[in-house]
Design a protein around this nucleic acid. Structure first.
Length: 554
RNA sequence: UGGCCGGUAGUUCAAUGGUAGAACGCCUGACUUUGGAUCAGGAGGCUGCAGGUUCGAGCCCUGCCCGGCCAGCCA
């Protein structure tokens, strides 16, 4: 059990919060969710569910710039897709009036003041880590004057940036966040929900704890970078006449994954720079991207449960996530055959024109999924990678004179090759053994490999997108560099002439199948001239490992 | 440079002050009509460093080292 769940259990036993558990998931609607958010969603909704409590989705819409209803809708969709009920979303903007009343309360108490300094001056006056801040010349205005000024701010009598409301705390505080933080800034900008009702907007710090308190949140879980903000969170709550229990903030480590980026800034740069197609590009760690790529929500949830929650900032290997995706699809994905880079095989001893339907299991892991029929004929496509004219050691597949098994078919021997002017292999002349239709040779001879195939006369065409790491560096942007420096321009390879077994045409958009020996592939949802499949993740590939090791070694 | 928080196999996490474990990855073998899956086994650690307290320290204390966050009218 992680430290947060232990804490929640302890609170329950101690009767803190009257035994209640209430959490919240509070994204700002200025972008879509990524897998880092998924960790938080699983934590917040999970903890609440485990204690019969509730978890609400609250949009932290305190800054009109960049926020949009489309993002809010998308976020709610993504949460539902992940497997949690977002319910009717709450909004911080619903509390603007209450927040404002509390601000006047602080002003009256002498705990907040209107500052006329501009942003630059305020920043300079804050000092730095070693030098204490200096008081603003407006710090000692009377409550009466401050109240009048705050009302004028709200009434729109000042322009953007002319004045701010600041909490009056301590300009020499060792925690920089406590050096009279800004509570309200003036923004004459429309808000996607509140419209033009306000021209002053609360900052994150001034809104967050109060929103938690208003909703009755008990455990306010956020990421580690808000550690320093907790002191402020508690200070505001301490000074206000709250309706109920005071919520408690607890921080945990955000999720980082190797070879990708999670920050909104970096994601935005990829999208705006045209380096990816959009928020739902299958290479992105966004929930929309992962969904399109074929990552099942169950696997994402299992991954989040597995990595747990702690207070150590680290980076998880993307391979771990992928292993969860494989584990899920291995159990549920239907097996099909597809040839990505076709090489023609002519079976010379196949009865001319004859077509046979071969029966293949849909999923050997689950016999209940039954079987399907796949047409077999004297002209096939096989994978170019499955043939080598001069095979190196440990290459078990087809080569001149060598025999392999065709999956759900027969043993096949390569008798001869037809080559072009540059020595490239154009076609394989082969023969099959009619006695091996059951997968075994009656004489007991063995083959080292089983390869996949598609009947050339029956195959359908498809486009297949293969993906590589979006970033070459395990940690893009490490030691302060621009993450985009390690962007991998070859992160997507589009194969437009793949040959697929005809049954694959029936695969519903959005679903994931296994192309035998190649990996899991998600059929794209967009209609197109020919079907498009995204490779979700490859299979464990021993031969690829051998090659990689050979490339690295000697 | 000040404050806060961290530091345990390659990685991410466990371990009431009492024999340092798991998962993924890696290696070997078994099985197999996917070089997949499954099963069995293996390698991998001076618990950041140095002192101290204790019968006994990954855990408590002190100092040092390394990393993260904080000087937005972003969240």
């Amino acid at each position: 059990m992680d430290f947060i769940r232990k804490q929640v259990v302890a609170d329950g036993e101690a009767g803190t919060f009257g035994g209640r558990v209430q959490t919240r998931f509070p994204p700002e609607p200025n972008g879509f969710l990524h897998i880092g958010h998924a960790k938080s969603v699983c934590l917040n909704f999970g903890v609440a569910a485990e204690h019969g409590g509730i978890c609400r989705l609250r949009f932290d819409d305190t800054n009109p710039a960049g926020e949009d209803a489309a993002y809010a809708r998308g976020i709610a969709e993504d949460i539902a897709w992940l497997g949690f009920d977002p319910g009717v979303p709450l909004h911080t903007s619903e509390y603007f009036e209450q927040l404002y009343e509390w601000a006047e309360h602080l002003v009256v108490q002498g705990l907040a003041y209107v500052d006329d300094q501009d942003a630059e001056t305020i920043s300079a006056g804050r000092g730095d880590f070693t030098t204490p801040g200096v008081a603003s010349p407006w710090r000692d205005r009377s409550p009466t004057e401050n109240l009048a000024l705050l009302r004028d701010m709200r009434a729109g009598r000042f322009g953007d940036g002319e004045k701010v409301l600041r909490a009056r705390i301590d300009m020499t505080h060792p925690n920089m966040l406590m050096r009279d933080p800004v509570m309200y800034r003036i923004r004459h900008a429309g808000h996607f929900r509140a419209g033009d009702a306000w021209c002053i907007y609360p900052t994150y710090d001034w809104a967050h704890g109060q929103s938690d308190a208003i909703e009755g949140v008990t455990h306010s879980l956020c990421t580690l970078e808000f550690e320093g903000n907790r002191q402020l969170y508690d200070w505001y709550l301490d000074k206000l006449p709250l309706p109920g229990d005071r919520p408690r903030q607890t921080e945990f480590a955000r999720l980082n994954l190797t070879h990708t980026v999670m920050s909104k800034r970096a994601l935005g740069a990829l999208i705006d720079g045209g380096l990816v197609d959009g928020w739902d590009d299958p290479r992105l760690p966004t929930l929309r991207g992962l969904r399109r790529r074929g990552y099942p929500p169950e696997a994402i949830r299992a991954f989040c449960a597995h990595i747990g929650v702690a207070r150590v900032n680290g980076t998880h290997e993307i391979e771990l996530l992928e292993s969860f995706v494989r584990t899920h699809h291995n159990r549920f994905a239907q097996r099909r055959m597809a040839v990505l880079r076709p090489l023609e095989v002519v079976i010379d001893n196949w009865p001319g024109g004859h077509v046979e339907c071969r029966r293949a299991p849909n999923n050997p892991e689950n016999p209940a999924d039954g079987t399907r029929e796949v047409p077999f004929s004297g002209r096939l496509w096989i994978e170019r990678d499955d043939f080598m004219i001069d095979p190196p050691r440990k290459f078990y597949r087809l080569a001149p004179g060598r025999e392999v098994r065709l999956r759900a078919g027969y043993f096949l021997r390569c008798d001869d090759t037809e080559t072009g002017p540059d020595g490239e292999v154009l076609r394989l002349r082969c023969s099959y053994d009619p006695t091996t239709g059951g997968g075994q040779a009656p004489d007991g001879r063995k083959v080292r490999a089983t390869i996949h195939w598609v009947s050339a006369d029956h195959a359908a065409d498809a486009t297949v997108a293969l993906y590589d790491r979006l970033f070459g560096d395990p940690v893009p942007g490490a030691d302060g560099r621009d993450p985009l420096e390690s962007y991998n321009p070859d992160s997507r390879e589009l194969i437009t002439a793949a040959k697929i077994e005809p049954g694959l045409l029936e695969t519903p958009p959005g679903s994931v199948v296994q192309f035998e020996r190649l990996g899991y592939f998600a059929r794209d949802t967009a209609p197109g001239e020919q079907p498009l499949f995204h490779r979700t993740v490859g299979l464990r590939d021993e031969w690829a490992n051998i090659q990689k090791r050979r490339g690295q070694g000697a």
